[in-house]
């Protein structure tokens, strides 16, 4: 079941229409890279998908919760990240987390969580916001340039999190992300490209034949389902 489905979406920034006819489906485990030139509407699209703005037209269905991390993470100057992480957790109605341990795992010095946000660098704040979003375990992560402020270790950490995390839709000019799909925004249009190979499964059962086209990463589950239902898998084509 898709965590996000958009059909013929129109995205505006103020009075200007920046994107038209956006069709998009994001399933659990997908990592979708939104690519495009500066001003092509990447951030506007993320804001609409995050519920921060309404689409000007089209349909948008989201199942489950979402977490959004903007490009320039900024907290109130005197706010301590530890306080903010706790408050956000409560806002989401979730239980407490050992943020010091979580920060350590991400490579962030836990002592930094107790310092005012004003004393933290862009990368540190970025990591704090990513920690919050990842630990919320949302159905959908929406990340605007999440790698831009991170060092090499931070980028590796985030890539590892994304590989085993929830569905994610992100912009990235650094070329760090390893996506399963790419959305290219250009001239107000959006063209999706699947970066995961599609497999066609041919199966038969008592004279009946079926043909299923699935993504490579979903093929195991589909094959298992067919076999359990008594189908004979004849061949799988790439």
């Amino acid at each position: 079941m898709p965590v996000l489905a958009a059909h013929a979406l129109t995205v505006a920034r103020g009075r200007r229409i920046v994107l038209r006819d956006v069709d998009l489906t994001v399933r659990a485990g997908d990592v979708v890279h939104v690519a495009g030139a500066n001003g092509s509407g990447k951030t506007s699209l993320l804001r609409v998908l995050a519920g921060l703005a309404r689409p000007r037209g089209g349909e948008l269905h989201r199942t489950g919760t979402a977490a959004f991390v903007p490009e320039h993470v900024l907290l109130a100057p005197a706010l301590r990240p530890l306080e903010w992480l706790g408050a956000m957790r409560r806002l989401r109605g979730l239980g407490a987390v050992d943020w010091r341990a979580a920060a350590s795992e991400s490579g962030l010095d836990p002592a930094k969580l107790e310092r005012p946000a004003a004393s933290l660098s862009k990368g540190m704040l970025q990591r704090v916001a990513l920690l919050e979003a990842l630990h919320a375990k949302p159905a959908l992560l929406l990340l605007d340039e999440p790698f831009s402020g991170l060092d090499t270790a931070g980028r590796d950490w985030l890539n590892a999190q994304l590989a085993h995390g929830p569905a994610a839709l992100l912009t990235d000019h650094s070329g760090t992300v390893a996506p399963t799909e790419r959305l290219r925004l250009s001239d107000g249009r959006c063209s999706p490209t699947s970066l995961v190979a599609l497999l066609t499964i041919h199966a038969s059962r008592e004279g009946e034949r079926v043909e299923r086209t699935v993504r490579e990463n979903e093929s195991d589950a589909v094959l298992r389902g067919l076999l359990e239902a008594g189908w004979h898998v004849e061949r799988v084509e790439r």
Partner: peptide, 18 residues
């Protein structure tokens, strides 16, 4: 006004949108 825009956006998403 004292809540930075980025912080407000993250909180808005956490509480379910607009």
């Amino acid at each position: 006004a004292g809540e930075p825009a980025a912080q407000a956006e993250m909180a808005t998403t956490a509480v379910g949108g607009l």
